[in-house]
Computed example of a mutant assay.
Amino acid sequence: MFGAIIGGMADTDRIPLDRTDEAILQVLQDDGRISTADLARRVSLSPSATADRVRRLVDAGVITGYTATVSATALGYSIMAFVRLAYPSGNYKPLHDLLEVTPEVVEAHHVTGEDCFILKVLARSMSDLERLTGRLATLGAITTNVVYSSPLTRRTLGPA
């Protein structure tokens, strides 16, 4: 079984892909549980050649991991928010320490602009979100945006 995550490479690290590699990546992003035999049929290769291609894509760093996508709502997290943090110092250790012990922060991005970080946060309730943002606010000024809905939650990638 496969489940693909693509990313993490700089432009200078770009790996040349042919149409078969691109087809493999598309199928794996659409159906990460596909068997090697079914993947091989979908891309018109033998199972052994397909397994070799997938292994090469992993070794080259094109496929960077395997995962399952889960429903935050089904796990009790009914609120999603983005918290922008204006971090006042260049010492990021307190932020990294807080991220380490705050599993409700599911993404953290160091960004340009007035804010230094954008954090994706999941919460069980508004009072839970208030608790989480209170902890984050100890590090610097925050702005919180609660998500109403998400018309696009994931998009598959092809070569740039």
Rank of each mutant, 00 (worst) to 15 (best):
G76Q: 02
D18M: 04
R56G: 09
S44G: 04
T64F: 01
G113M: 03
P159Y: 01
T12F: 07
I79M: 08
R131C: 04
K120I: 00
D52S: 12
D38V: 02
A74T: 08
A4Y: 06
G7Y: 08
V83Y: 02
L119F: 00
G32P: 13
A4F: 06
V70F: 05
V54N: 08
D38C: 03
A141W: 03
L157Q: 11
I34D: 06
G3P: 07
L95S: 03
G65V: 09
R33P: 06
I63F: 08
P16L: 07
L75E: 12
T153F: 02
S149N: 12
T67W: 05
V105R: 00
T50R: 05
F2T: 14
L95I: 01
S149K: 13
V83C: 07
S89C: 09
G113T: 02
V106L: 02
L139K: 02
T12S: 15
L98G: 07
E114H: 11
V146Q: 12
G61S: 14
T69E: 14
M9I: 03
A10S: 12
T138N: 10
C116W: 03
D115Y: 11
D13A: 15
S149Y: 09
L45I: 00
M126F: 13
S150T: 13
V83A: 10
T144N: 03
H110S: 08
F82W: 05
I5E: 11
M9P: 04
V146A: 05
R135I: 01
R155H: 08
L17F: 04
L95F: 01
